[in-house]
Design a protein around this nucleic acid. Structure first.
Length: 731
RNA sequence: GGGCAAUUAGCUCAGUGGUAGAGCGACCCGUUUACACCGGGUAGGCCGUAGGUUCAAUCCCUACAUUGCCCACCA
């Protein structure tokens, strides 16, 4: 047979992917002897439908595909379930920005349903290009089970989950100080905030001449909302004032300030006294709760002052700050102004400066006790009392869920300890609308709207992570399959808990923790047995890829230029779990060369070869050595894959293929092939090596290995006439 | 302020309680029909610094330095 001298990935990849799809083997139900196999499941972390895939996705998806392909060859009933995430705020923010640029119109120019449909159309367009990219990567995803976090089955799951939590009293609605994003016009959770170091002025002053204590702040405009001054109870300087109250006028606004003692105030910081602004600071709100102080709102949703008469009312906070500072200077109340750096809170998705505001919102209570009726969680027996925090803690503490690398377990626990109630309502349109209806004073929570005319549904939508938290089981038929007849196997009972979850470490809190919470509460079980956290792909300077840096590299370009296999191998090579990867195009180029090397190994072995039987023996020293090396390579690659050391496995097989098989044995085989007594046996040994290499390499470089496998098939050199992807892993 | 990690060849990174590894790059040689997307060879590292444990440390422990990340948010 004649093969081209150089491997041309562009002629191979689409053809091979079609073969795989046509075989139906991506769907575990179609695998040979499917019912005999032990399940192995991964839920694809669903990419956001905000745009196209970047190298980070390519990396994440490649390592998962390698694991799935390996497990399939190990004889497992492998399900890798694909989907996309509607990414509520991110998608709406992106759409609004682009739409405003193009049409000059905002969400206020449309009705709710019109606007929703427009965003959804945008999302689905993005989704289809994302799905195309996933195909190009050669991923063995079961497309028949494709899901979207905002489609009908997932909506049912979201509503069922909400209802169940609502009825258990874990979801409540309350007026509390929340993180308000004035730019996105919505609340955001603590985890959706990023901090930016900025220069600010720390002002030290007194409210009025008669007020006995000085306070410091970087935001004097909020002081109009003060209702107390808090001092440390052991601070002798201020003891005499505790319990007293003062009426005064501050910047033209009358204030009633009570002096209170609270342990959280540090004596040695600043003046040792803290002006308490319950409505516009998280920390102050908590102090206010402890002392029954009332809220006094002075800033609105647009970050503008709502009080202060002509001087302040309607002014933006930054402007108001200057006005108040001036007033303090003019009235001789300012004592000190010093430059400080502080961390400014910004909304992750919109960049809006977070304004803490009291708002009526929905929350999930993480410390409330409830009874878990049916539990498979270790440390939480069925029917016992627990809390959501407890579930999240115990699932990992008990090692029922193993986090890899282990060091992230510490981070995880630390996060849980500091976790506050989760604000799940958002004032945006793109998302799951909260399944609660109001009729005057009456409230109804359910899957469907209650009958009757006058019910109005809550206009808020849910935090996108609410639906993501259900992902491992909402994609497997929950809740309907939860009610399926006993004993009848369904996706949920077959594939859940999933085997391993492989997201980036940056998503540990957002997502991994929420999945454990949701699965624990709703199923009384873990969502996965193992979490493998991978690192971030960075550019050559070690920076993250981002729009603003314009350092993006389209994985499609790399695939077209060097081949998908080369890109995949380059991403896996040297990428230890949890470590960041520096992306270098040279690396991809090197792996293209490796693919070509493999191609030529096959060309050499396939020339002038016939099959009759598969019996061979080690006749020469070279034969013995290569068989020994092959055996240890199989052993270590298998061990490495079993322990998720993918980078190690990839390096071992690379090393063997190029530097043992090609450089040493093929060279040694040349004279052996000239020797009539050794020829046949040598050919069989070469073939045996090639077949084994193809198998070992297939999880990493699926296209070229399957293509060469096809050539072997054409020459009747294989015992079984099926695809490499379902061949048996070597022993 | 608290925590985590990294520090190994020019670059990017693996790795191990017992004479240091890969890819890319550099240099020299080589067109022997599998492959020039190649082969053969060479150079290049007191494995961050200082202590300690050990017969033996790049690896384990302690401290320090530098860098990166995460969390908290001192008003």
């Amino acid at each position: 047979m004649e093969l081209d001298k150089a491997y041309d990935h562009n002629q191979v990849e689409d053809k091979i992917y079609k073969q795989w799809e046509d075989s139906g083997y991506f769907n575990p139900d179609n695998l040979p002897d499917a019912q005999m196999r032990e399940p192995f499941t991964i839920s694809l972390p669903p990419p956001n439908v905000t745009g196209i895939l970047h190298l980070g996705h390519a990396f994440e998806d490649t390592i998962q595909d390698a694991v799935i392909r390996y497990q399939r060859m190990r004889g497992k009933k492998t399900l890798w379930l694909p989907g996309t995430d509607h990414a509520a705020i991110a998608t709406q923010a992106k759409f609004e920005k682009e739409h405003y640029k193009k049409e000059g119109k905002s969400r206020h120019d449309y009705s709710r349903t019109e606007f929703f449909d427009m965003i959804n159309k945008f999302a689905l367009e993005n989704q289809s290009s994302i799905l195309g990219q996933l195909h190009k990567l050669g991923l063995s995803l079961d497309w028949s089970r494709l899901a979207f976090t905002l489609d009908k089955p997932r909506e049912l799951a979201v509503r069922a989950a909400f209802k169940q939590m609502f009825e258990a009293g874990l979801i409540y609605r309350a007026d509390r100080v929340v993180n308000w994003d004035p730019k996105g016009q919505t609340t955001v959770s603590d985890d959706e905030i990023e901090y930016e170091e900025t220069k600010a002025t720390l002002f030290t002053f007194k409210y009025s001449k008669d007020f006995p204590i000085s306070i410091s702040t970087t935001r004097p405009e909020t002081k109009i909302g003060d209702t107390a001054v808090a001092v440390n109870p052991h601070d002798d300087r201020y003891k005499q004032y505790v319990g007293k109250a003062y009426d005064l006028e501050f910047c033209g606004v009358p204030l009633h300030i009570k002096i209170i003692a609270d342990e959280s105030v540090e004596k040695d910081f600043g003046t040792g006294a803290l002006g308490v602004t319950p409505a516009h600071s998280m920390v102050d709100y908590e102090i206010a709760q402890r002392h029954n102080l009332s809220l006094k709102t002075v800033i609105n949703e647009f970050a503008k002052m709502t009080v202060g008469g002509r001087l302040l009312e309607g002014k933006k906070t930054a402007e108001a700050r200057e006005i108040v500072a001036n007033w303090l200077r003019e009235n001789g109340l300012m004592e000190k102004e010093e430059a400080v750096t502080q961390n400014l809170s910004k909304a992750q998705r919109t960049g809006g400066v977070i304004e803490p505001l009291p708002k009526l919102q929905w929350f999930i209570e993480v410390n409330k006790e409830f009874i878990l009726p049916n539990s498979k969680l270790s440390g939480i027996p069925s029917g016992s009392k627990t809390t959501l925090k407890d579930i999240m803690r115990k699932a990992v503490e008990s090692k029922q869920i193993a986090i890899m690398p282990e060091r992230f377990e510490k981070t995880y626990h630390h996060w849980i300890e500091n976790l506050r109630d989760w604000c799940i309502s958002r004032q945006i349109i793109y998302g799951h609308q909260i399944p609660v209806w109001y009729n005057g004073e009456e409230i109804y929570c359910g899957i469907e709207a209650p009958s009757g005319q006058d019910w109005i549904q809550d206009t808020d939508t849910l935090d996108t992570w609410f639906s993501s938290g259900l992902w491992t089981f909402s994609t497997l038929g929950w809740p309907s399959s939860a009610e399926a007849p006993e004993g009848k196997p369904n996706d949920l009972s077959t594939f859940h808990p999933t085997s391993v979850m492989m997201p980036g470490y940056e998503i540990l809190f957002f997502w991994v923790a929420r999945m454990i919470l949701m699965s624990g509460f709703l199923l009384g079980d873990i969502p996965f047995h193992k979490v493998y956290l991978h690192g971030v792909v960075r550019d050559k300077q070690g920076r993250k890829f981002s729009k603003s840096l314009n350092n993006g590299i389209d994985p499609l370009d790399m695939m077209e230029k060097y081949g998908t296999d080369a890109l995949r191998m380059a991403l896996i090579f040297g990428a230890a779990p949890g470590n960041d990867v520096i992306f270098d195009e040279q690396k991809v180029k090197g792996m293209k060369h490796f693919a070509n090397k493999l191609w030529n190994i096959a060309r050499f072995i396939l020339q002038d070869i016939q099959s009759d039987d598969w019996h061979w023996e080690a006749k020469t020293d070279a034969d013995k050595i290569i068989l020994e090396k092959l055996e240890t390579t199989i052993k270590t690659v298998t061990e490495n894959l079993d322990t998720y050391q993918l980078h190690e496995a990839a390096q071992k097989i690379y090393q063997f293929t190029w530097h043992e098989l090609a450089d040493v044995y093929i060279e040694a085989s040349k004279p052996q092939l000239q020797n009539p007594e050794l020829k046949k046996n040598t050919q069989k040994l070469l073939l045996h090596n090639l077949i084994t290499v193809l198998k070992l390499l297939h999880p990493f470089m699926p296209f070229i290995t399957e293509e060469i496998w096809g050539k072997l098939k054409e020459q009747n050199l294989l015992k079984l006439n099926d695809l490499l992807m379902v061949s048996q892993w070597p022993k």
